[in-house]
């Protein structure tokens, strides 16, 4: 999974391999490991992309799923 923008600064990393069967399970695991990051990821302005497509709600994940958490985009 990938973190962008300020989320990577909050976490102190940008990329990690994490085992989770669904998006909600992934969120739970991330929040358990780092409460600050969990809170940052749950903000209403943070979007989620699975395999480079924006998504909403929960979704099952596979071993090859790429999940990215995207804070508000600034434009170029």
């Amino acid at each position: 999974m990938l973190l962008f923008g300020r989320l990577a600064d909050v976490a102190g990393w940008r990329e990690k391999i994490i085992e989770a069967a669904s998006l909600s399970a992934l969120r739970t695991r991330l929040a358990e490991a780092d409460a600050g990051l969990g809170e940052a990821l749950s903000g209403p302005s943070v979007q989620v992309a699975v395999d480079k497509t924006l998504t909403r709600g929960d979704l099952p994940l596979t071993a090859t799923s790429e999940v990215a958490f995207l804070p508000p985009m600034s434009g170029g």
Binding site: F4, P71, P72, M73, G75
Partner: peptide
């Protein structure tokens, strides 16, 4: 979809809408 960070004399900050 870019994320923009400004590095200035007082440190760095992310620019968000």
């Amino acid at each position: 979809p870019f994320w923009k960070k400004e590095h200035g004399p007082d440190g760095a900050r992310w620019i968000e809408p």
